[in-house]
């Protein structure tokens, strides 16, 4: 998938997208419930990135976003290795992702999609 497609696919549903927001919209923070994404890069210092990998989130890990807590709260996701995690929005902004499968649920269908 071309990078621009990923950007638009991830950025489009973000409400009130400002230009600054758009620039970082290919991060996990912008992924929506139901979307399946693959980690392409972890932009953290090496220690923290190593810890994230140890927890189960490394480059090439595929994840399904299950839900996003309101008010910029954590994102709940399931990795292809079978783990489920809640990750803070700030940390999610440091994780670059590419869309694998755009199964975006229709708007207003609730937050969860298994």
């Amino acid at each position: 998938m071309a990078n621009s497609t990923v950007l638009s696919a991830l950025a489009a549903p973000v409400p009130s997208s400002s230009p600054a927001r758009l620039a970082t919209s290919a991060t996990l923070a912008a992924a929506l419930p139901g979307q399946r994404v693959r980690i392409t890069q972890i932009a953290q210092d090496e220690d923290l990135a190593a810890w994230l990998r140890a927890v189960g989130m490394h480059e090439e890990t595929e994840m399904t976003v299950l839900r996003r807590a309101p008010f910029d709260g954590p994102i709940h996701l399931r990795t292809s290795d079978g783990g489920e995690f809640a990750i803070h929005r700030d940390l999610a902004r440091c994780i670059q992702v590419a869309l694998v499968d755009a199964r975006t649920p229709p708007r207003g269908s609730g937050e969860h999609s298994a």
Partner: peptide
């Protein structure tokens, strides 16, 4: 601090 990530067990 540790990265802000929380495992959600079954």
């Amino acid at each position: 601090s540790l990265p802000l990530i929380l495992e959600m067990p079954s």
